[in-house]
Design a protein around this nucleic acid. Sequence first.
DNA 1: TAGATATGATTGAATGTTCATTCGGTTTTC
DNA 2: GAAAACCGAATGAACATTCAATCATATCTA
Lengths: 194, 194
Amino acid sequence: MNKKEKIMEATLDLIRDHGFHGCPMSMVAKNSSVAAGTIYHYFESKDELIMELYHYLVAKVVDAAQSGDDDQLPFKERFMRFWHNMKKLYVQDRSIHRFMEQFYNSPYFTEEMEMTDNQWHNWMRNFFTDGINSGELRSGVKPEILSIMVHGTILSSVKVTIYHGKKMDMDQINLGHIAEIVWDGIKKQPEAKS
Amino acid sequence: MNKKEKIMEATLDLIRDHGFHGCPMSMVAKNSSVAAGTIYHYFESKDELIMELYHYLVAKVVDAAQSGDDDQLPFKERFMRFWHNMKKLYVQDRSIHRFMEQFYNSPYFTEEMEMTDNQWHNWMRNFFTDGINSGELRSGVKPEILSIMVHGTILSSVKVTIYHGKKMDMDQINLGHIAEIVWDGIKKQPEAKS
DNA sequence: TAGATATGATTGAATGTTCATTCGGTTTTC
DNA sequence: GAAAACCGAATGAACATTCAATCATATCTA
């Protein structure tokens, strides 16, 4: 791993454990085994470090989402794979989840960023557009809405896994259920409306 | 409004606009029209201020959630009221949403807090337990899971409203849809499994 | 090939700023 | 006239950032 990545990974770990505060440059330096000054060789400022880290992680997330995807598959299968990929990513590497949630709710993330070439939202929009076009998803709901909702639910289910996982001896069946619940919500609905 | 609340509200506003960082005590003092020293008359430290603010907001949220609830109503109606209440709260007062998301993903929020007498989760658990017992919700899924999932989706839908609300000329119908999608996911499912 | 020179990488102590917190004194309340 | 509330300048710690000096590596020169 090159030094730039080392620095970003150290920052990520620090943010996971101590929050967006709690990561002074001195500690980033120590945890990535470089001198404080070196960080400024790679990043203009702490803010820029955070921003680059964000873009670095978005790329990682998009990569994970795509893994094993194939647009020839039935959409339900694609959906379940996507779900599983995301959940695995977030559960295995808490830090990404932690960083993103803090980032999105901080002033680093501006309304403008949400709009302009956001790889991640583009990818999700395309994915759900496929599902709508294939006739397997509800029509009449914009893909943007589906994607934000589904992603939000994945994040929630990650929280369930993490916080309650051990104590409630929650079995795999129960957790697998969540994807089913969401699928039942977004799939093409049968005629009779309750 | 008493001074203690004034201080908490000023902190809340500052965190909404400038994040968990960006709210120095000097500015809290200015925005609440109080001297810096006075803050320490009401709160032991900045950390304690944040913690008290959290509990203050949890109480507000529980309060909003309950508004107009009545356990004699059909559960779908109760669910829709709950949904609407939450969404209204979060959309009208962005700061609560912003604060909570930052708080939950910061070191202030410990795993332990999640467990011990959390008014909010208690309330939600009871609410969804009612739904399961009434036979109107899926059985076989723990209320804890339902509640975290539903709440996560509400938060997502708030994000949709806020970020895309204006640009996409998203009509009420579309937004109302989200609650329907979620309801279709959690309600008792018809026999045929797709 | 040995050395000379340049370019880039790295260091960590020093700097100046920002900020939480304190405290001696003042005002308000009862 | 005591107790509580309040003030805001002063204090000291923590921190981001800088910079003069050192080291590493590549490129050139005779």
